[in-house]
């Protein structure tokens, strides 16, 4: 797994945080929440693959 993934997630998080603040100040609270949810879904899809790869690695290593 690459270290870049951590920085990508941090960058997406900061982007979502900025968009969140902009939308809340514009009075669009529900759109702010949808943006946060969309960002979370994107990030989770990236992370879940890595978690699955880690579990496969551990299973093959221990022959569990």
């Amino acid at each position: 797994m690459d270290v870049d993934l951590i920085f990508k997630i941090a960058a997406i998080g900061i982007l979502v945080a900025v968009l969140n603040q902009v939308l809340i100040r514009a009075g669009r609270d529900e759109q702010a929440m949808m943006t946060t949810l969309a960002g979370l879904v994107v990030v989770l899809m990236m992370v879940v693959q890595e978690i699955a790869a880690l579990f496969d690695l551990v299973k093959n290593l221990f022959q569990l």
Partner: peptide, 22 residues
Amino acid sequence: LRQSVPQFALVLTLTAGVWLLA
């Protein structure tokens, strides 16, 4: 990230933890 979007802080911690374990 925790100040504005705490959910992302959790995912970031999870990712860093997975990288360390790997």
